[in-house]
Each structure stands twice: as structure tokens, then as C-alpha cells.
Design a protein around this nucleic acid. Structure first.
Lengths: 343, 343
DNA sequence: ATGCGCTATGCAACCGATTGCAAAACTTGA
DNA sequence: TCAAGTTTTGCAATCGGTTGCATAGCGCAT
């Protein structure tokens, strides 16, 4: 089965006795081409089994209609929501998504950004790896005027718009809630403090404690990678504490749930002995018993918004002016894990 | 800030007084180019800030090093795992992933496949939408010799390799387990029967019933879209049944969990009154109380395998011979939702 | 007739890497 | 010194759509 030759606009041109330029314009619905000619072109294209060659078009136009996406992991509830949102918007606008994951390592993030650069994506949507400290690997894009937009795990840069939620405020609210429910000794389990999301939530937590004159000590803060495994370790650590906390605010749901379950297994009553709060509103938060108090966070919306902002830049060919931060709303969702009284 | 001119191999050639052909070969580490020349080329490329232009390369070579992925949804636990697996393998092998979702509609699936076709992906990895009945939209690929590989939700086609688990066997095992635990009247909640995964699981369920001489009646089968919402509806339906089932096998975990929770809310005891089993081993299965018996299903591995098979085809330029079905293993994971005795 | 203004189409030069074939440069042996 | 062999490099066509500019064709008014 020899794959038959590809039909080009030249073939169509020849068969209609017109020029390739006219065919090109006709297919693009250029106003300068007469109705009749257009119809003949479209008919011939269909007849002959023409397929548009975006490779050639890309080369000539120096654009790819492709958006690069770099995220820490694809398979987290939040990220897959965000990507689903991006895909919808991008698809609608005629863009493709090239997706890669850094697996939380700077090395892969750098490699991926280089691939994206060589593949000449028109723009980039990025959520940073756990310990990316500088973003020099994105400078090449910035220098060329290729928009780089950060979402969720961001880096402040004058040329990079970013989209976040108010992590400080969310951390503050949830801590305040735990205090209102009677917590005095409130622990916080957080991630790498060089990442905005975690340091901001921590800051909110600290400020809430301070506002209510509650003391903070290093013993109350655990920093890890917020995996389920580390949730269990955290539980062990809590069990070994002389003075146990009355409440725990964990910076993501996965870790919070694992920790809760382990504590339950060891006979701790939640929320009676220790109340819990997480972050993200993953599906498991609604399922664990008691249901987990958490911050709801619109992944899909964030993805859509990021894609929209990028595409707006691309279609209007905007200079990336002094960068713009978009703050999306979030909601404290109070569930049984943090309410001492039965609802 | 005027973006400075792109450096091409011609610029490098000029600066070194050699030909562009030599530069091209040098950069590709072609054996015919001397060590010294190569070094000079690489140095000059670095100095001048050259970046490889894959657009030009793609056009000339008629390849894109890009793999298209079409899935029903990006944000399901299984799919995001599968995609994560694909990304790793593809990335490793120097391929990019273009990802799109059909949102379970044939219309979008067709559109997306057309986009992929025009964008000249080198191959396609597909998991079909809920009610895709024919795959004529993939014929164009097949005719051109572009490999199309189905995974999980497949379609039998002589030219398309596919990767699945043994859904029949899994459905059979899980039903048999429910029977062994004392179930006689066992319901099954399934999805669209024209999709292999659901019809096969149903078939396994039927055969298990038959083997143990348990009667099947239409009342025992509910077909819906397996969403959480429909899980709740299913619970309502079960509550209204005169003769309630002793066990329920639901074809995914999301729906199973929603149904369980609703029944619990209405005072049904699980597994004492009704035992439950799901499918997929989503994170929620391990968290819901009682923990949900389910089939574990290696999404990431399936993604990796699909990508590997595709890439092997691409690098060896294999004819897609009589299609090859790869069956991945699965495991029945027994948890408390189906075990009458306390563990 | 002549000229003006429009519309519709064509010319030809891109975009930049790749590659078959030819040829130059260099080695080696007689 | 010359021929044959090997290594290294260059020529030029190619991939196929796009687009600035030129021009042909036509209607209409003077």
C-alpha cells in the first residue's frame, strides 16, 4: 500500500488553470477572490482529497498556533482540571496544546522549556516545579516576545502575567475558622516555602494566629512534600507529641486525608480530639469521614482564564506590559472535620 | 524591544565560511563532518544564539515528531494517569504530545481528529468517546499509513493495535467475589453498552451469575453515564425497589461512591445490607467508608505502553500489520465494602 | 476614445533545514 | 609523481503555503 501523493495547492491550481496564490487565498476565504472562483477551489480541493499543510504554513508565517504547557504533574486533580479548561479554550480558538510535566524537578522543567522553545510554541502556560528558584530558562521566550504566563505556582516577573488565588487570604480564613471552632494550638503542614502557594498560605496562617494572640512555635510547622506518605509520617509525628495540637491545617487535601486516616486508625477522634482542614477541595475531601474542611479552588476556571489571557495576547499581538496579576476567587468550605458541634 | 533577527544555519555558514549543508550536518552530528568543523559549528551556534527551526525541518522531512492524543476527558483519575505515562515515554523519545478531549461527544472527536490530521501528527493515541459507533474519522490516518492506536475504550479494527485490560474477566471476577460473599441478587450499574469496556464488564457479570445459577433480570441492570449525579439517582432507584439487591457492582468508582454515600445517608448499612464494588481504583475508593472493593487498573502503565508501541512503529517505520491487542493485567482489590465479615 | 477606479488574479520571492549527488581535498601506496 | 581511495564539503533542488506588488480585466463617466 503505497501512500498516494499528497495533493498541494499547486495541484489544485493546475487542475483549475489558475495560480497557486489564488488557491491559497481562496481556501483562506480572502475577500479579493470572487465567489465563483472560491467555490471552484473548494470543490476541487474536496474532490482531489486535498489536506492543508500546516507545516508549510507554519514555516512561512513563523507561527505554530500551538501553546506550550508545563506543569509539575499531569495527574493531580487540580492540574487535570486546569488543563481541561485550557484545552477547551485553546481548541475553540484554533490552538493546540503541547503538554509536558516537570515531575517537580527543575531539570525537566528546563529541558521541557527548551523543547517548547525549539518547537516554537506561540506562548507558554506554566505552573512551576517544587523548587524552581529562578526562571532564567524562560528568559529566551521573554526576550523574543513570546508570552509566558504563570498560573497557580508562579514567579513574580515584570514580563509575566500570572493567575493565582489569594493564598494568603485563604490560609488566613481557614486558620481563623479553626480558631473560631476552638482551636488554640494549631499546627500547619506545608510544602516548600520558596513556592508562593505554600509560603503565602503559611503567612496567612501566621497572621491569623497573631491576630488572636496565639503563640507560634517551630514545633507547630511541618514542611514536607505533601504526599500521602508524608501525611502518614505527619500523623506519627503528631502522635508522638507531648502536647498534641487541637487543629491541623494541611496545605493540600491528599496529605490531610492520609494524615487523618492514620490518626483515626490510632484512635484519635476527628474533629473531637483534633480538627482538620485541607486545601484544594479534591474529590476525596467530600468522601473522607468526617468530610474535610478545605478551600475550594477552581482549577478548570483557572485553566480557561490562563488560556484566554494568553490567546488575547497572541491575537492582538500585545506587548507584554508591566505584568498583570489576576486573582481568582476561592471559597472556604466548612465540613465536619473542623466543626466540633455536630451539623 | 524589537525582537532581533533569528539566526539561521546560513548565518552560521557565512560566519564560518562554509556551506549551510555542512552546518546542518554538523549540528546533527553527521559522521561525514570532521571533528574540528563540528566544534566550530557548535561554538558559533552557541555564540550567535542560534535556535533550531523545527518548522523548517518538519516541512522538509514531512514529520513533526508529534503524537496526537484524543481522550474523552482529561480530568479523570485514570486518564490523567494514562496521559502522564504517555508524556514520560514520548518526552524521553523526543516526541511531543498534542492533547485534546472529546468531552464524550462524537462531534468533538471528529473535529479533533481532523485537527490532528491537518497538523500532521506522526501517530495517534485514542480512547473513544462514549458513543462513537464507527471510526470513519480515523480512516484518513489509516489510509495514509499513520498509526492509530486505541487504548482502554477501543474499537476493533484490523489496522489499529489496541491496549486494554480484560474487562470481561475483571467483571467476572468481581461478580464472583460478590457472590462468594453471599450475594444472590446482584445489581449491575453500567455505561453505554456500545463501548467495549462496559459491555465486556457486563458480560463478565452475566456469566458469573449464570455460572452460579443466579437469575438475571432487566431490573438488575441500570445503564447510565456513571457520573456522581447518576450514582445518587441510582441510590434513589434502589431505595424504591421492593426487593433490594444484596450487592451492587458499579462500573466505575465515582458512581459507586456517590451511590454508596446516598444509601448510607438513607440508613442503608454497607456492606451489611448491601455490599458494593466499583471499578478503577480511584483515590476515593481507598477513602470512602467502608473502603470500596474495586478493580485496580494501571493507567500510567497503559499510557506508557501505548506510547511505546506507537513510537516503536514510528521509529521502525513498521507497516501496521494485522492489529495486535495487548492485554494488561488488573487486580481485584477486596475492601470492606464487600466483605460481610469484619476484617 | 481615453482615462479612472475597482475587482480579480498572477508573479516570484520568501520561510530555513535537509539530502542525493558531485566534487574537492587529502592520504596513501606504488 | 601519479592514481586510487577516503574523507570532507558544497551545490542546488525540495518541502508547500503565503504575501507584497504588479497587472489584467472590466465598467463607467467624460
Amino acid at each position: 500500500m503505497i501512500p498516494e501523493k499528497e495533493i498541494t495547492i499547486y495541484d489544485i491550481a493546475k487542475s483549475l488553470n489558475i495560480s497557486a496564490a489564488t488557491v491559497s487565498r481562496g481556501l483562506k476565504d480572502h475577500p479579493g477572490i470572487s465567489k465563483l472562483t472560491k467555490k471552484r477551489i473548494f470543490d476541487a480541493a474536496k474532490d482531489m482529497g486535498y489536506r492543508f499543510n500546516s507545516l508549510a504554513s507554519n514555516l512561512r508565517r513563523q507561527r505554530t498556533n500551538t501553546i506550550g504547557v508545563i506543569v509539575p504533574r499531569l495527574n493531580s486533580s487540580f492540574m487535570s482540571d486546569a488543563i481541561a479548561g485550557m484545552e477547551q479554550v485553546a481548541n475553540q480558538a484554533g490552538y493546540n496544546l503541547i503538554i509536558s510535566q516537570s515531575l517537580e524537578t527543575v531539570k525537566k522543567e528546563v529541558e521541557n522549556s527548551l523543547t517548547m522553545f525549539n518547537n516554537r510554541v506561540d506562548g507558554l502556560l506554566v505552573s512551576l516545579a517544587y523548587n524552581t528558584q529562578d526562571i532564567s530558562h524562560f528568559e529566551a521566550f521573554i526576550k523574543k516576545g513570546i508570552p509566558v504566563i504563570f498560573f497557580d505556582r508562579i514567579f513574580e516577573h515584570i514580563k509575566c502575567p500570572n493567575i493565582i488565588i489569594d493564598n494568603y487570604q485563604a490560609g488566613y480564613e481557614i486558620t481563623k475558622h479553626l480558631i473560631a471552632e476552638g482551636g488554640r494550638r494549631i499546627m500547619h503542614v506545608s510544602g516548600n516555602q520558596s513556592r508562593n502557594v505554600y509560603s503565602e498560605r503559611f503567612r496567612g496562617y501566621r497572621d491569623a494566629l497573631e491576630e488572636f494572640n496565639l503563640p507560634f512555635s517551630d514545633e507547630l510547622l511541618i514542611v514536607n512534600n505533601l504526599t500521602a506518605l508524608e501525611g502518614i509520617e505527619t500523623a506519627v509525628q503528631i502522635l508522638s507529641m507531648e502536647k498534641k495540637p487541637e487543629a491541623v491545617f494541611v496545605s493540600n487535601d491528599t496529605c490531610a486525608v492520609a494524615c487523618m486516616l492514620e490518626l483515626k486508625k490510632q484512635g484519635i477522634k476527628i474533629p473531637e480530639d483534633i480538627s482538620f482542614a485541607g486545601f484544594n477541595n479534591d474529590p476525596i475531601a467530600k468522601v473522607v469521614e468526617p468530610n474535610l474542611t478545605t478551600i475550594n479552588y477552581h482549577g478548570e476556571e483557572m485553566g480557561e482564564l490562563a488560556a484566554n489571557i494568553l490567546i488575547r495576547h497572541l491575537t492582538n499581538n500585545l506587548e507584554i506590559g508591566p505584568a498583570h496579576t489576576t486573582v481568582l476567587g476561592h471559597e472556604l468550605i466548612v465540613r465536619q472535620s473542623s466543626t466540633k458541634k455536630i451539623i
